[in-house]
Design a protein around this nucleic acid. Structure first.
Lengths: 142, 142
DNA sequence: GTGATTGCAAATCTTTTGCACTAAA
DNA sequence: TTTAGTGCAAAAGATTTGCAATCAC
């Protein structure tokens, strides 16, 4: 009953987040949350969903990713001008970004330590610290 | 002769970067590089240039910012989905990003120290590490 | 002159929105 | 029912591109 287990996991996850478990949200959540951490763009998830015979529109994919993000189930990662990535790992961690391929990879939050960040100005508080390690291929690429 | 000094500084800067010193590039460079570190979006620089009676198109502002960036005179900072910032400080440093206002502020590179970043995969090298400290207002804003 | 640069408008790309339709509670 | 969610197509931004006109060398 793996399939049923997955389904109910995802179902309770949506319920816990206060999101109505619609067919599209359930299907997208299953793609996203089953099988480890993922980093997707809206377009990529849309293509993947279609390939998996999930009937959903691109607009709904965008809406859903933002709803999941607002609900704390995902995190938006900004690394590429003109394209947003969404990360199924919403805990505190950092990223490698492979500039040539556009691939994002997690760096566990505990492994990195930061010192010397100045305090934020009065009246403000740090909401998040992003560390993005941009990586490029060593060998010729042109 | 402050004005003349600024002009020749900017002129040699462009020449050193191998960029033909056209009227538009000179004028934009003067806006950008005179008077401290700046963080601009293409649109904002365009508006500023027009206000300063610099006759330039938005397309040229985009082109120029990218040329300056390729030449190492500036740096592109990605913090906001759907909008690019360009930073006149191209040396190694980090940023505060004020989420409500969209303002970016430098954090000197020396003040922050990072430990524990895993080595990049074989065949790749770190091209840059960005630390972005996202900040929000403490008081109500809704 | 000659090739690089610019301006303009059109094109492209990503993301958002309006609204009639459908589905969950 | 009643309200939230969805699909579609259109709209909105940001950025890029094609090409004729213009400028630097």
């Amino acid at each position: 009953m793996k399939r049923r287990r997955r389904f109910s996991d995802v179902l309770s996850r949506l319920k816990a987040a206060g999101l109505r478990p619609t067919r599209q949200r359930l299907a997208l959540a299953e793609l996203l949350f089953v099988g480890g951490d993922r980093h997707v763009t809206a377009e990529a998830l849309y293509v993947e969903a279609r390939a998996a015979d999930i009937r959903v529109s691109l607009a709904t994919v965008y809406n859903t990713l933002h709803q999941f993000t607002s609900a704390g189930l995902m995190r938006e990662v900004v690394v590429d001008p003109g394209r947003s990535y969404f990360d199924t790992n919403s805990s505190d961690h950092h990223h490698f970004f492979f500039e040539e391929s556009g691939v994002l990879r997690d760096i566990p939050g505990e492994s990195v330590s930061l010192h010397g960040v100045p305090p934020p100005p009065p009246g403000t508080a740090i909401s998040r610290v992003d560390v993005i390690v941009r990586v490029r291929n060593t060998q010729r690429s042109d």
